[in-house]
């Protein structure tokens, strides 16, 4: 559980910076930040499951 929380914190902090510096409007920035956050989480989970099956 702690690993997941750390990953979430990491994704949150990184996506805040990515979202804040990208795009032109606040709305676009928020959506982009959320998209980056979701991508971080999804890729992290997929990689976690792939590595789970690799001894």
């Amino acid at each position: 559980m702690r690993h997941f929380l750390v990953m979430t914190l990491f994704a949150g902090l990184a996506s805040v910076v990515f979202g804040a510096m990208a795009k032109d409007t606040t709305r676009d920035r928020v959506f982009y930040g959320l998209k980056v956050f979701a991508e971080f989480m999804l890729i992290g989970l997929v990689l976690g499951w792939i590595l789970y099956f690799i001894p």
């Binding site: 902090l13 990184a14 805040v16 910076v17 804040a20």
Partner: peptide, 17 residues
């Protein structure tokens, strides 16, 4: 101000965490 708070704050938070 908001960029400073969000972007700078994220760096400070990352470092101390």
């Amino acid at each position: 101000w908001w960029r400073a708070l969000l972007m700078g704050g994220a760096v400070w938070a990352c470092f101390f965490v």
